[in-house]
């Protein structure tokens, strides 16, 4: 008897709590895939730290002009101020030409991020297109495209970028294109393998059975389902692109002085390293922290997007 009463009470409570049917079912609504992935990502502490640092760097890059004026603080030579150690006025000190290192790091972040992302975008677009075609059609098409990519893959990407920059001149645009092209084969491999797994799933066959064109199937059904592995590769390769920019600038074939860039800051500070270590410390740390945050982020995304890996 008492049980019945309890049940009735319970039911009464339920009815009161959820007035409409829709609201009642809301509590049972499955979480979306995105939500699930996001929750998995949040559980990975290192990845969240990576995300925080990276967002911080992005914000700094965006608001750079508010932190320090480009012309007066990052570019203009001020010899009377040279080689000042870190102080409240110059947090990271000043370099051999009297420019505030903090200002140069902050403005350098803009260049690194813009070149990093746009070169990866180029690599993703070209490499992705080739990889998708190779993976989807298979057979001879696949062989021809991938063997060409393999040839480029044989060359170390810094070397390939170096060759392109050396041949066409060291402008910002050339460097972006050079890094983009040197990453192209890597992206074509990633996209190809992702496309090949999706290609075999029945919904692709179903799409063909309703008369969709191949182009439509590739863009609308296949690539969109390869989103996960591609996002992971993008984050990891942005890090690698930033490193390549710094490397090129360091050896003098990338961004040219006086434009502030982490790599060329390292290079010009090298001569004063013995007595004024802070000159190279700041750009070195900037590169290190940026790359680290992107790698943590990429690893976290990979684990979150593919739970089987953990």
């Amino acid at each position: 008897m008492s049980e019945t009463v309890t049940r009735k009470e319970l039911m009464g409570e339920t009815v009161n709590k959820y007035t409409t049917r829709k609201e009642f079912f809301k509590q049972y609504k499955k979480k979306s895939r995105l939500e699930e992935t996001w929750n998995r990502f949040l559980r990975n502490k290192m990845a969240v730290i990576g995300l925080f640092i990276f967002v911080f760097i992005m914000v700094v890059a965006v608001v750079a002009p508010l932190i320090a004026d480009y012309d007066t603080e990052a570019i203009t030579i001020n010899v009377s101020n040279r080689l000042q150690p870190p102080s409240t006025e110059h947090i990271f000190g000043t370099d051999e030409m009297g420019r505030d290192i903090m200002a140069r790091i902050v403005h350098g972040a803009r260049i690194s991020l813009v070149v990093g992302f746009s070169s990866v975008a180029i690599a993703l677009f070209i490499g992705g297109a080739f990889g998708a075609i190779a993976g989807y059609y298979g057979g001879k098409t696949d062989d021809i495209i991938m063997r060409c990519m393999d040839v480029f893959l044989c060359l170390p990407d810094v070397l390939l970028a170096l060759a392109i920059v050396a041949a066409f001149g060291t402008t910002l645009v050339n460097m972006t294109i050079a890094i983009g092209l040197s990453f192209t084969p890597k992206f074509s491999r990633v996209v190809r393998s992702a496309v090949m797994t999706v290609r075999g799933i029945e919904y692709v066959e179903a799409a063909r059975a309703i008369g969709s064109t191949n182009t439509h199937i590739i863009t609308n059904h296949v690539l969109i389902n390869c989103f996960g592995p591609i996002v992971v590769q993008v984050t990891l390769y942005v890090a690698s692109a930033i490193l390549t920019i710094s490397a090129l600038s360091f050896i003098g074939l990338g961004i040219q002085a006086p434009i502030p860039e982490w790599g060329n800051m390292l290079a010009s500070g090298r001569a004063y390293m013995r007595d004024h270590a802070y000159i190279v410390m700041a750009p070195g740390l900037a590169i290190f922290v940026t790359i680290l945050s992107l790698n943590l982020l990429g690893d976290g995304l990979r684990d979150a997007l593919d739970p089987r890996l953990k």
């Binding site: 179903a206 059975a209 309703i210 008369g211 969709s212 059904h221 989103f227």
Partner: peptide, 23 residues
């Protein structure tokens, strides 16, 4: 492409995999 889906349509065996999860 004209015929597929218009004149002849196919119901696939496994509804779990024959629908695209992202659309």
């Amino acid at each position: 492409e004209d015929i597929r889906g218009d004149k002849v349509a196919m119901i696939f065996q496994d509804p779990m995999t024959s629908l695209n999860p992202v659309h």
